[in-house]
Nucleic acid binder design. Structure first.
Length: 796
DNA sequence: ATGTGCCACTTGTAGACAGCATGTC
DNA sequence: CTACAAGTGGCACAT
């Protein structure tokens, strides 16, 4: 089908596509159009990565907009949201506007209401539904990208429930679900009342195979000689082989450490193939990486990058990840070794994909467990860059003939698994049942169960008993913790007065039969004020219960550490595990600072729960270190994490403490201010004394400390302080001017001002124009600080 | 005494969404 | 129930 034959698109769209070089639709795209994609029909497209899924989405959304509607594109990751936004921005040329809504992108509801297409993460959409964003009812088309992620234990239920809610809000809504090829795309299509486009078609040839010995055997029977020389690894031989004909490669491994080690080794493969221009550009890139964060991980990455190789995993900061991805797409980096993050993330195709590890450590399996077929296929699907490579190759590595055979059977020939709803898992239901009641989607137990009937879970499970009984458990939990009330049936069910401590959750449920007996269509379920707040804040009710209980149990003003440990032990904080030996270390810290912790500690004899408690203390201590201005490098070293992990923890803590502040207000806690202060300290990474200073634009933790030491302790001091001192402390003239201006100084100009030491006397003339780290007060301060933190390391 | 190379043993293991109100060094 | 690479510590040996 030619693009000229398309109808129902905004004027200009077709010529736009032609300018992009799109003439002919790919077969799956044509199939989608035949199935009514441009006419508002529901559709499930289960097709391989890079086979033009986005075009199917675009055609559906654009035609919906042309009919006067509004479209929503749901993505699983924030990084994908920005990627899609950038892609859709091109439609601006024919008057179709795009907006983004994710947790960290600013966007008011009114502003989004003016956009034709909105890109958002599933959690953000869920949150918008909970908060009743008015424009949601204007939606006529919703696209759900990577819909197979419904299978994900932690985040799948959100997508599932959100789709169900959007459909209930607007029964006319067109749903377009894009999925990887999965076992049961037909079931998903049934659930969504959609027609199915299920295709294996790819725009460029993908050959999959197994490398064993000196040969690469493909699924089509062909063989390619790839000899392994000397003591080199198989992946090194494969990377060199394809690099010599001008192709880049992606190597998937199963741990961060392996990714880093492999990148180091592969550097010696890519390095000899670099041109002088490559080297210059790579040196610049390495410098950018070093500047982003001064940690060992960054230095290691930069060292690799200089040699044309890189590693990629969640320990990298977002900046570093994008730098690496962009340089790889620009063919500057020749090889990336990555953990599975990359397979799910933004588009980074390579001519050859090497899946080195096909097993991963999984404590629940008691050791190494094989990866899902779907996961391996997702990685292999990254092979082949449309328009750049003649073909893509995806290779698994085998060390024996038997293993080679096993890999063919298990992955090359195998069909991917089915997608199974994970909605009946209690943690997921806890959140979504509360949200469903709070936002008025259901007002009775029966109504709630009716709503849940519209989910994929219900359509997949033969007996509804399980969902019903878990729902009752969850309702009872929500009622006991004062998030939900029943009204109208049994007069004396005083909820709240007998609310059980959060710690007992999960064990002491009132019997489900008891609940069912009380149920009656007339019994109203209603969220309490607290319940509404929890739902609006997007907290797991169990997190909220923990926080509320912790705040209520505090007799004295909670310390920062106490609050940090409190939020760190909620299910919304990603766990930081205790390493061997650390249980002792943090056990000691616990006895030292026991009095600061909020709520009741589990007994030491309940081993698992006590360990969780200590793990939360570890995370809390990390946050305290950060809020005591400990160097990034010291923290990443001490807790053996990457810069990205540190930022992630800080970010989550900031969010949870923000939520805790709202909860504190809601329950009239006297510690609201303490929570706010702890949050501000973690946000800026500073001690109490600097909170005023960091509120000035351009002043962060480092500059604030230097100013403070020079006697400038609050914003007002910036307006009156000696300019020479300010310049001496801040180094850069431009920086100093900007900061003085932000502080509201009348005449911020630094013209003709010389740096002056705080004690008096003219400072070194070398400071002018020097933007580097340098020494002087700065160096001294950070050294002392470093030593301080080192000595406090011994404290626990 | 101190340095070096080898082997056996121990250790640790992927991922990152959300509120609210504005902006790092 | 399963693996495996990197790091660690002990040991024999040479200097």
């Amino acid at each position: 089908m030619n693009v000229e034959e398309l109808s129902g698109l905004p004027p200009g769209a077709v010529s736009h596509f032609r300018e992009e070089g799109i003439e002919e639709l790919y077969p799956p795209q044509a199939e989608a159009v035949d199935a009514g994609a441009t006419e508002g029909e529901n559709l499930v497209a289960a097709v391989p990565t890079a086979s033009g899924k986005t075009m199917i989405a675009a055609l559906s959304m654009l035609s919906a907009v042309q009919r006067g509607g509004k479209a929503l594109y749901i993505v699983p990751l924030r990084a994908l949201a920005s990627e899609k936004k950038a892609e859709f921005d091109a439609y601006d040329s024919f008057g179709v506007t795009t907006g983004v809504a994710t947790g960290n992108y600013e966007s008011t509801s009114e502003w989004l209401a003016t956009k034709d297409v909105i890109v958002a993460t599933s959690e953000k959409v869920d949150s918008l539904v909970r908060n009743g964003a008015a424009w949601l009812s204007d939606l006529t088309c919703v696209v759900s990208d990577e819909v197979h992620l419904i299978d994900d234990r932690s985040r799948g239920p959100t997508l599932e429930v959100t789709l169900a809610k959007l459909r209930q809000l607007n029964p006319q809504l067109q749903v377009v679900a894009l999925s990887a090829t999965v076992g049961n795309a037909d079931e998903i299509a049934d659930w969504l009342d959609a027609s199915l486009v299920d295709s294996e078609w790819r725009p460029i040839d993908l050959r999959t195979g197994v490398h064993y010995g000196n040969a690469l055997n493909f699924d089509d029977g062909s063989t390619r000689e790839v000899p392994v020389e000397g003591s080199e690894k198989q992946e090194a031989a494969l990377v060199r082989d394809i690099l010599q004909e001008g192709g880049s490669s992606l190597v998937f491994v199963n741990s961060r450490r392996n990714a880093e080690a492999a990148a180091r080794r592969l550097g010696s493969v890519s390095s000899p193939e670099l041109t002088d221009d490559d080297r210059t550009a790579l040196a610049e890139l390495a410098e950018e990486i070093r500047e982003d964060s001064d940690t060992e991980t960054s230095r290691d990455l930069a060292d690799c990058v200089e040699r044309g190789s890189a590693f990629h995993h969640a320990g990298l900061s977002n900046t570093q990840r994008s730098l690496v991805e962009d340089a790889f797409r620009d063919r500057l980096l020749k090889v990336i070794s990555a953990t599975p993050t990359l397979a799910a993330g933004v588009n980074t195709p390579a001519r050859r994909v090497v899946v080195r590890d096909w097993r991963r450590f999984d404590p629940s399996a008691g050791g190494m467990a094989p990866l899902d077929v779907l996961e391996i296929h997702q990685m292999m699907g990254r092979a082949g860059r449309p328009g750049l490579d003649p073909y893509g190759e995806a290779v698994l590595l085998a060390k024996s003939h038997d293993e080679s055979q096993e890999l063919f059977d298990r992955y090359v020939w195998a069909d991917p698994e089915d997608v199974r709803s994970k909605l009946a898992a209690e943690p997921a239901l806890r959140t979504h049942v509360l949200a469903t009641i709070a936002s008025g989607f259901a007002r009775t137990r029966t109504g709630l169960l009716d709503f849940l009937e519209a989910t994929l879970y219900a359509s997949q499970s033969a007996e509804s008993g399980r969902l019903e009984s878990v729902t009752d458990d969850v309702l009872s939990y929500l009622e006991r913790n004062d998030f939900v009330e029943r009204e109208g049936a049994s007069p004396g069910t005083g909820s709240g007065s007998d609310s059980v401590e959060a710690d007992d959750a999960g064990s002491a449920f009132t019997s489900a039969a008891d609940l069912a007996e009380r149920d009656d269509a007339a019994v109203e379920l209603e969220a309490t004020n607290l319940g509404h707040t929890v739902s609006r804040l997007y907290l797991d009710p169990m997190s909220a219960a923990e926080i509320v209980h912790g705040l209520e149990s505090a007799d004295d003003r909670p310390t920062a550490l106490g609050l940090y440990q409190l939020v760190s032990r909620t299910p919304d904080m990603y766990e930081l595990y205790l390493r061997s030996g650390e249980d002792e270390k943090f056990g000691e810290l616990y006895y030292e600072r026991e009095a600061e912790l909020l709520g009741d500690a589990p007994s030491e004899f309940e081993e698992n729960r006590f360990e969780d408690w200590l793990a939360a203390l570890k995370t809390g201590k990390l946050l305290e270190d950060w809020a005591e201005e400990t160097e990034e490098e010291t923290i990443t070293e001490r807790y053996k994490i990457g810069p990205g992990d540190l930022r992630g923890k800080v970010d989550t803590a900031e969010w949870l403490l923000g939520a805790a502040e709202s909860l504190a207000r809601e329950i009239d806690s006297e510690w609201t201010v303490a929570v706010r202060e702890a949050r501000a300290r973690v946000e800026h990474g500073v001690g109490e004394d600097l909170l005023e200073l960091v509120s000035v634009g351009g002043v962060g933790r480092k500059r604030a400390r230097r100013l403070y030491e020079a006697g400038i302790e609050e914003p007002a001091d910036l307006r009156t302080a000696d300019k020479g001192v300010v310049l001496r402390v801040l180094k850069g003239k431009k920086t100093a001017e900007t900061i003085l201006e932000n502080a509201g100084r009348e005449d911020p100009s630094m013209d003709g001002v010389d740096p002056v030491d705080p004690g008096g006397g003219t400072g070194g003339s070398s400071a002018e124009g020097e933007s580097g780290t340098g020494d002087g007060p700065n160096g001294d301060a950070s050294t002392t600080e470093f030593e301080d933190s080192q000595s406090s390391l011994g404290d626990f």
